[in-house]
Write a protein that binds this DNA or RNA. Structure first.
Lengths: 199, 199
DNA sequence: GATTCAGAGAACAGCAAGAGAACTTCAGCC
DNA sequence: GGCTGAAGTTCTCTTGCTGTTCTCTGAATC
């Protein structure tokens, strides 16, 4: 079943709201978002989305328009952009996705980042590479992890966890290992795959 | 069925729009693009393109003129195994396949090899990496190519083609560039993508 | 002259989209 | 109970866009 342009716009607005808001929007709220004055008009579109299986049937006892949760295609992972200082991974919007072959990921939830800088170049991880990260809060020593440092900087490094001290090793002779107290370093995922396009 | 010049122009405009715009153009929009004043005139051309199987039949309920979707490049490519000395790529049995995301390949025929050795490690290509190779007989200078040397050895190197001499550069300070007569080197493909799994 | 191609323009039908009115249901409150 | 307001539902009416078909005209070609 194909959506009309307006139905697609309603669906897009619903998705944007679902990402931003805790409460699902009502017909009135969605009307305001879309610049409509008539609930009746909007209701027609919502009915079409329900028929298409994209929106839950409405229940007046529990107001609000809810999207049907749909698992994304298996070979598509959220692409969270370049590793940017000062932004915890969780806070990034999950807008884009990128195709990842199954042998580059694990069964656990994964996401994709694009590498910035050459701090891991001796490990064959270059500026611009795409890395597949398994979302985990812990890692084995020697693994390459995405680490959030003091809630400020996100970085990709090889990790060594010892009692009272965590060391992050770059793979670049020009750079020094970084030592932190354990509570300063938050592991946000472990490197499980890597992709590079030559253009 | 052959297209008239004007039909070809309409098709070209449609392709340009499809690449640039999210929404497919309507008759009115395409008229503006082509400098036409009459939807009726344009409709004749579109009808011819539909008959030629290049454009989807129009449906007023879902406005817009859509090109027939070209079959997308398959996401499965032949996996020809590890780069092995003494075997031309063409001769390898095409038994296995491997999944490759579209952004790591080109529209041309491609295949996948697994890298043996560290001769390209400074280019971020490590032992065990999977490389996506576009099947070509020629390459630009500076490209990383799969080259068959004297019909014996297959290798992955950066290429420099000069009059009377072809040089293959490893990316490893421990190794020397290799110089050959042009007829000794046969290009079997150009590196377009790369994948690595961490296990 | 006949044919083909291209464009202009008129007229038409279909339908998405919106406005707005009237209705039901339900929860909260006095 | 009865009132009120919010939310959802159904309906009619209107508008405007989109695609469609048609005729007429002009230019180029054989």
């Amino acid at each position: 079943m194909r959506l009309t342009p307006r139905q697609q716009a309603v669906l897009d607005a619903l998705r944007a709201e679902a990402a931003a808001q805790a409460r699902p929007p009502t017909l009135v709220g969605l009307c305001a978002l879309l610049g409509l004055r008539s609930r009746g008009s909007l209701h027609k579109h919502v009915r079409a989305l329900i028929a298409a299986g994209l929106v839950e049937p409405l229940d007046p006892r529990y107001p609000g328009i809810r999207l049907i949760a749909q698992d994304p295609p298996a070979d598509t992972l959220p692409f969270l952009g370049r590793i940017a200082a000062g932004r915890p991974i969780d806070a990034l919007p999950q807008a884009e996705t990128i195709q990842v072959p199954p042998h580059l990921r694990t069964a656990a939830p994964c996401y994709v980042l694009q590498v910035t800088g050459d701090s891991m170049c001796e490990a064959g991880i270059l500026d611009g590479d795409y890395v597949v990260i398994e979302h985990r809060r812990s890692a084995d020593n020697g693994a390459i992890v995405v680490a959030l440092i003091r809630g400020e900087d996100t970085t990709l490094k090889r990790i060594l966890q010892e009692p009272g001290q965590v060391t992050l090793f770059p793979a670049n002779a020009a750079l020094q290992p970084l030592r932190f107290a354990p509570q300063e370093v938050e592991i946000q995922g472990v490197l499980v795959g890597q992709m590079r396009a030559y253009r």
